[in-house]
């Protein structure tokens, strides 16, 4: 896990108000002090082999309040929320929810840190909902490609999708689209828990 040659500069005492741990506790109701670093989460994580920070290391950095390292890590964007870690955690902790909360913090505090493809996907997806109330997959793919720059990936599958009737070419909007827009506006304004 260690990549820095500097010794850890640990903030003294219990989690202070502005510590990342305190923030996570506030948002999720979960106290990272619960974790005793057994690593069972990382042991079962389907994405562990691709992550530079394994799940238990993410929680460890939280305990050490290493905010910059943690929020800049691409690993938090690799979580599939498959809940394997949460289901098996011996401390009834919820790493999946903590990772969701970390992603939310990055988006709010420093959206530039989100990996381009991931952020492209989420933006494209949420734009679809905001525009139509539902996800229109053809539009999603097109919009994702433009945002991510992955223009040619999967283009060869379009004819197959069309032939199977799996891609609608025009979106269908729900009637009460104003409901959805209101939800998006209010959720963007309201601080989470």
């Amino acid at each position: 896990m260690s990549t820095s040659s500097q010794p850890l500069a640990l903030s003294a005492g219990t989690p202070h108000n502005r510590s990342l741990s305190a923030q996570i506790l506030d948002v999720t109701g979960l106290d990272p002090a619960r974790c005793y670093q057994c690593g069972k989460c990382s042991a079962g994580c389907p994405m562990a082999s691709e992550m530079d920070l394994k799940t238990h290391e993410i929680i460890r950095l939280l305990q050490l309040d290493m905010r910059e390292r943690l929020l800049a890590s691409e690993s938090i964007w690799m979580c599939l929320t498959c809940e394997t870690c949460t289901t098996r955690c011996p401390n009834v902790f919820d790493p999946a929810a903590v990772i969701d909360a970390l992603r939310e913090i990055v988006l709010r505090e420093n959206p530039g840190l989100v990996p381009r493809r991931i952020s492209a996907f989420h933006s494209a997806f949420l734009d679809q909902i905001r525009a139509n109330g539902r996800v229109f997959e053809f539009g999603l793919v097109a919009s994702y490609k433009l945002r991510s720059g992955a223009l040619f990936a999967d283009v060869d599958s379009v004819p197959g999708m069309l032939a199977r009737g799996k891609l609608a070419l025009a979106p269908r909007r729900i009637e009460a689209i104003q409901d959805i827009r209101r939800i998006f506006e209010q959720c963007a304004m309201e601080r989470p828990r």
């Binding site: 929320t81 939310e104 989420h122 949420l126 939800i183 959720c187 989470p192 828990r193």
Partner: peptide
């Protein structure tokens, strides 16, 4: 996934 990874309330 896009909603719960980005905004809990949403």
């Amino acid at each position: 996934t896009s909603a719960h990874s980005t905004n809990h309330l949403l």
